[in-house]
Design a protein around this nucleic acid. Structure first.
Lengths: 170, 170
DNA sequence: TATTGTTATACTCTATAACTATA
DNA sequence: TATAGTTATAGAGTATAACAATA
């Protein structure tokens, strides 16, 4: 069966490359930050996942894992707020990570309502296993930008996210 | 009841403003374009919707409406591809707009498989009614950027989206 | 009375397969 | 045989309300 035929049946489109706007116009909307932000995010994620032969962990899970590594003992509610995940959903995510032995949950004695998260050694190994791959794919998903453009984009997006100007050095 | 109490119950957080990173670190991830892109998009949309006393149309619907206005007779499949909406979902979206009398569907005689979309006069009126509001909210959702930063951001995001450098003049 | 987190559930979005009609 | 669109359905992601435990 031809590739085209398979795509027609599954609607499995290739990742669009430059000028896949198909000659359409959107007027002012093309200069609306939110609109372009959304389109760009979808395009970047499509590229990211096009490179994704399932490595057994979701982006959201990897993000939480890494955040716990960088901020040992972080409360899961704080993490939820920063990552814009609703608390009930974070509960499930954390539970799933715990069930797989990647993190541990601790009840601090000074505030027994809260839950502090820490990486298990298996969690650390998992990060080691997939981190390089994640970053590589992220870079490839934005490979149309040169280093300077990439830095500028990240700087502006951090501003939009309401994050302080400088992050940790890479 | 206090506002804080209501928020606690509903998890209805205020739109985060600068430095709502809560002192957390994400290491290299903070420089990963895809990650920051995602966080920024969520922040921008949160701000957008915080200003949203339901105006009776979704962003996706407005986008399609506007695209049809700017590209009369466009095929809905083409629109779906450009806006990264799957065909089956576009079918429902279009049907909903048609049911509300905002667009009309036409079967071209030269290719009777396809569906060409056009705005009804009600659709035109709807756009007139909400367009200014949409753009104003979009602008407010990105109000932390000055004009120069905004232009730069849109330019870079278009590149990420795989769209040609210049859109229509505003 | 407020905060942290959980449970249960609903809702919206998105994705996939199978199909019809036309080319 | 391929393409444009539809139908039905499944799944993921996200959101809300009500609750318990602790502060």
């Amino acid at each position: 069966m031809s590739l085209a035929a398979r795509r027609a049946r599954t609607n499995d489109k290739p990742v669009p490359e430059p000028d896949d706007k198909a000659g359409l116009s959107f007027g002012e909307l093309e200069h609306a930050g939110g609109f372009v932000l959304r389109i760009a995010q979808l395009a970047a994620f499509d590229r990211f996942f096009a490179l994704y032969p399932d490595i057994g962990i979701k982006i959201s899970e990897f993000t939480v894992l890494l955040a716990v590594q960088k901020n040992p003992g972080v409360r899961q509610g704080v993490l939820a707020d920063v990552l814009r995940i609703k608390w009930p959903n974070m509960t499930k995510l954390v539970w799933s990570l715990e069930r797989r032995g990647l993190i541990t949950r601790h009840i601090p004695t000074n505030d027994r309502r809260s839950v502090a998260l820490r990486l298990s050694s298996a969690g650390r190994k998992q990060i080691e296993r997939v981190a390089a791959l994640m970053y590589e794919r992220d870079r490839k998903a934005l490979s149309m930008l040169n280093d300077d453009e990439h830095r500028t984009l990240v700087r502006l997006l951090r501003k939009v996210a309401g994050w302080p100007p400088e992050g940790d050095a890479p």
